[in-house]
Design a binder for these strands. Structure first.
Lengths: 147, 147
DNA sequence: CAAGCACTTTACGTTAACGTCAACCTCGTC
DNA sequence: GACGAGGTTGACGTTAACGTAAAGTGCTTG
């Protein structure tokens, strides 16, 4: 509801270079419509690692992207553990050894297979929703004509 | 692993008219690779209502389909409550009143919107997986050439 | 008839992903 | 200097979706 700073499109308001923009935990929370508690929890689970300014957490562009990816993964039904596997390996990639990289490729293939099945599931469920929808409308029409 | 009776394709083994085929809880469980406990739980949550033969649960085609839909819904991240809302209303449709039907249409629209967003999420995540995949392969190539 | 298997109910245990306090700092400002 | 709006760390509570163990029923097979 309170869409202050769009999480994906440039703000347009204050033409900040975006790369160097910083965020407080509350800002991020409002952007993505989650609570600060959720963001702290993700940090505790090893998904985020913001800088500190004294005691306060400071989030940069990288952190925001990571949060975005995390939430997207969640919407697709991945667990935080699964998401962490990918994003942390992604960050450790440049100096990752071969075994780690192969493991990463395995995980990726796995996720992809998962996505493909979801696509099929969506297709099927769409058809069924259409079906139920049609029937419901017909019954409604029937009700309209009688009585 | 123990694929005895395919849940979606006709068995082909015993040319049963399928419409009248019956299932025990264990059969269904093996078919869909869930535990009997899960199936009983779904019943307790109002998603299934098998007949009884004495004490034992007997499942028919309708029940099997309902279980299939339920599991598909779950794979798409719907809660059992949400799934129940749709399937029970679907069954109660013929004699449902107008207000119920409109409510059902609302729910359907809602689910559909959800699915559309998931489609977009899948598209985006696919691209990101591709990206990570490419980078990982490149790094692997690099490792192969040195040392 | 004993053993084994598949089913049953009851009930407590578990995990993930947060929610919800409480109690405390630390600013800007009225 | 009181105060309100943000932030912080614990620590305990909650919900969904089952898992798991105990104790009993009923068939059929050696």
């Amino acid at each position: 509801m309170t869409q202050s700073t769009s999480p994906d499109t440039p703000s347009g308001q204050d033409a900040l270079p975006r790369q160097h923009r910083q965020y407080t935990i509350g800002e991020l929370a409002r952007m993505f419509e989650v609570t600060p508690r959720t963001i702290r929890f993700y940090e505790q689970e090893g998904l985020l690692a913001p800088h500190r300014e004294g005691q306060k957490r400071i989030y940069h562009e990288k952190d925001r992207v990571r949060l975005k990816l995390t939430l997207r993964g969640k919407r697709l039904g991945f667990s935080l553990g699964e998401i962490r596997e990918v994003v942390t390996m992604y960050d450790a990639m440049p100096d990752g050894n071969a075994r780690q990289l192969r493991r990463l490729l395995e995980i990726l293939a796995d996720k992809r297979a998962n996505l493909e099945r979801q696509l099929e599931d969506i297709r099927l469920m769409r058809m069924e929703l259409d079906d139920v929808d049609h029937r419901a409308r017909e019954v409604l029409r029937g009700l309209g004509h009688e009585a």
